[in-house]
Amino acid sequence: MLLIKCPHCGERPEIEFHCGGEAHIARPLDPSQLDDVQWAELLFYRANTKGVMAERWNHLHGCQRWFNALRNTVSDKILRTYMMGEPRPYIGGEAQGAATGTLSYPAPGERSK
């Protein structure tokens, strides 16, 4: 069970938290401007990083606040937690993992978000 440092409350065991998956996927202000492919990418396509990823956590059974964490998905070590709205910190030497690919369907090149 992970030990997670809520930026508001301090270190708490994982059972107090709910994980919200990959962070920094902003809902567009006007979703109607996205075509079906872009919308699918936003809803369903994920980096699923092996290495350091930024992910969302909610201190559900605590302050109920959302925040972000940098966690290495190989070691499960949490490198840092930070406030929602802050940009993703980059920590020297971290592997970037599978965060850079394009959509697997359909044709590549024309759909970059």
Binding site: G21, R46, A47, A98
Partner: peptide, 18 residues
């Protein structure tokens, strides 16, 4: 479980979480 990792080596993202 490693599909996203392998597909990334073809430059593709997948609708997957492991």
């Amino acid at each position: 479980g490693h599909t996203s990792v392998v597909m990334e080596r073809a430059g593709l993202r997948m609708p997957l979480e492991s």
